[in-house]
Design a protein around this nucleic acid. Structure first.
Lengths: 174, 174
DNA sequence: AAGGACGCCCGGATAGAATCCGGATAATGA
DNA sequence: TCATTATCCGGATTCTATCCGGGCGTCCTT
């Protein structure tokens, strides 16, 4: 399912547009990439069934719903036992403040990305919901300044020397 | 623009569905929340113009395009000067490996979220593209195990005592 | 308390898009 | 060179998004 798929420049162009705004109509998308609607539609359908596009999602602006503050909380657990890891992740994913949880290597075990109302709310979250948990040994908080700078999935340039994801090069050279 | 908006339970229900799958048709969405299509459409339109929904985006599965490894790189800069911060962020956002860049408080200055082919590729990225930059004092890499657990933006339960985002409670009680 | 104004809900009509299908065409391998 | 296969592409049909007008409940004003 996640076998690396060969993508040609038009596919990447489609991905670039859809990652930025997937509410565009197929007709407008087709016009922008210079394809008939049916071909464009077929491309998108293929990208979805291949698992390259694994979902179309609405992104909610946390600040617009009163969550003006975001933070990363680096969490270190007590000597790891599988059941403790599972109870920790289950509890964290239930919290409405949680945006994402990353299990990472290094001195910290987890990076927890949260969106809260303000610093008071963050303090409450850490004290009541995290530090009180027995499986947590240590928490370090990193406030996120401004809005995170998010980019989209882009191809390596074709001059790239490392392991390549390949190109299909379907009839693009006249 | 980012003034906190009042949302009722139906709005949150719509947000929950659209954050999970925004490719759903308005008709199907309306059926799931128990509203006529026109009312549902109006709700969604309002959520978009209010900035609560700030975009509909396709999410690309990095593994499906040959980027099987993700990592956070915690970056510490040399004594901060604004121009150095700007040159650093500009350079990082140009890298095709960059997924997101967070400017954070704490001992580290930035968390850089990247998707690369494999550990060799990650090593190349750090050595060639990051450590070589004069404004970077230190990099600490945290490999991300498995797939990150991502949740969606959810409301606080109404029993929540902290600062509330409020409810509209539009005619939900017969 | 009564009146008025505003916002929201809702059904229907129309324009436009998504989707399917068959033939044409180019790439691939023997 | 020829057969095969995958993709491209145009058109027709079905479904959807979207707009519009009326009705109703609620809140504010006086």
């Amino acid at each position: 399912m996640s076998e690396s798929v060969q993508l040609d420049p038009v596919d990447w162009q489609i991905l670039s547009i859809l990652q930025d705004d997937a509410s565009i109509t197929n007709k407008a998308l087709a016009d922008r990439v210079g394809l008939p609607t049916s071909s464009c539609h077929e491309r998108v359908r293929r990208l979805r069934t291949a698992g390259v596009i694994d979902g179309i999602r609405a992104s909610v602006n946390p600040a617009a719903v009163g969550r003006g503050l975001q933070a990363f909380i680096a969490v270190r657990l007590r000597p790891h036992r599988r059941d403790m890891i599972e109870s920790f992740t289950a509890a964290v994913l239930e919290l409405p403040e949680t945006l994402a949880l990353y299990n990472v290597s290094g001195p910290e075990d987890f990076f927890l990305h949260v969106a809260v109302v303000d610093s008071t709310d963050l303090q409450r979250l850490i004290i009541d919901d995290l530090a009180s948990r027995p499986e947590i040994a240590h928490c370090q908080t990193h406030l996120i300044f401004d809005r995170p700078l998010v980019t989209s999935m882009r191809p390596y340039p074709d001059t790239h020397t490392g392991p390549t994801t390949g190109w299909r090069n379907r009839g693009s050279t006249p």
